[in-house]
């Protein structure tokens, strides 16, 4: 069964000239117990989609079921089954970490005692036990983010929505959070996760949905997406640019294809179908021809390559992307 299923979701902000179609007909399904990564450049509509699925925004069109409940007609039922951690940490600065968790626990309708117990457990789990009795004014950005995530896990929700959960976390905290997410999945939770970090989607998501300009532009497992843009390739960095010509000849010969050459970085790239065998052959040939190399590797496409290919942009090129998105939708 699908924990989350959406059909033709549409949301437009503003009217007339200033209208921005943030989400323009998105279909999305997340089978129970799986993790789906929602990927897309800034302004793609990820947050807007999440807000509709979590009952915060009314879709202009389309339909979405979360845990079998319609987000528009049965919002209260949906809310009691989900956990949401929004893109920006939403916690009360004037309360302590413990008080925040207690507050949200109470609003999830736990008893005061249950809420207290959960607060203690979560502070421990998110390495905030020492800071638990300080007001959030004294927390760093990453600590707030962790508290925000802890708040979304109070009732062990079966369905979790995490909007860029690891943005602003240090590498150790990020890995910790990955573990928390995996733990929740092992317990049977379903997770919809948006992220700017492709390796995060690669590491956590069973399925990836790439959206841009409010449209789904690709969908599949990380491997399927990578396969879409081609297979393995051999990359060689020659030590001396004088050797680039002979290296190119050898590479073309071995792959029977066309070599890509970047004069500036002295890097040659060629697609290959023969895997490590081909690599060994190339190394032998280069050695025989007396070409000195700095680096040689067999590379598989990364999700980054997929992202650039699909959207024409790097995941991290921030404002620029958002600006074009807004501009294009407006024009």
């Amino acid at each position: 069964m699908n924990a989350i299923s959406a059909e033709g979701l549409v949301k437009t902000f503003g009217t007339g000239d200033k209208a921005v179609k943030a989400v323009g007909g998105v279909d999305l399904t997340v089978p129970e117990g799986t993790v789906v990564g929602l990927l897309g450049p800034n302004g793609a509509g990820k947050t807007t989609a999440v807000r509709m699925l979590t009952t915060l925004l009314q879709p202009d069109a389309g339909r979405a079921l979360v845990a079998g409940h319609d987000v528009v007609r049965e919002p209260q039922a949906v809310r009691s089954l989900i956990g949401l951690s929004g893109q920006y940490a939403a916690v009360d600065e004037t309360l302590t970490g413990r008080e925040n968790l207690w507050l949200f626990g109470r609003l999830y309708q736990l008893s005061s005692k249950q809420a207290k117990k959960r607060a203690d457990e979560l502070l421990e789990q998110f390495s905030l036990a020492d800071a638990g009795d300080r007001t959030l004014k004294t927390y760093s950005g990453g600590m707030r983010r962790r508290l925000d995530l802890a708040s979304s896990l109070i009732v062990h929700p079966e369905i979790l929505f995490l909007d860029e959960p690891t943005t602003g976390l240090d590498p150790a905290s990020r890995l910790d959070l990955w573990d928390v997410i995996r733990e929740r999945v092992a317990e049977g939770a379903t997770i919809l996760l948006t992220t700017q970090y492709l390796e995060e989607a690669d590491a956590l998501a069973d399925n990836i949905v790439v959206i841009d300009h409010g449209q789904v532009i690709a969908e599949g497992t990380a491997d399927q997406l990578k396969a879409q843009i081609g297979g393995e390739r051999i990359e060689v960095v020659v030590h001396d640019s004088e050797h680039a010509d002979s290296a190119e000849q050898i590479l073309n010969l071995s792959s029977g294809g066309q070599c890509d050459r970047d004069t500036h970085t002295r890097k040659l790239t060629v697609p290959t179908h023969t895997g490590s065998k081909g690599l060994i052959q190339v190394i032998r040939d280069l050695d025989e021809a007396g070409v000195t190399i700095d680096d040689i590797a067999l590379r598989r496409p990364t999700l980054d390559d997929v992202f650039v290919k699909l959207t024409g942009r790097h995941a991290e090129s921030e404002t620029e992307a958002a600006d074009t998105a807004a501009g294009r939708a407006a024009s």
Partner: peptide, 13 residues
């Protein structure tokens, strides 16, 4: 502004 209203609105309260 701090996004707390959003969080409250996502809770079964």
């Amino acid at each position: 502004q701090k996004g707390l209203i959003d969080r409250f609105r996502s809770l079964p309260m």
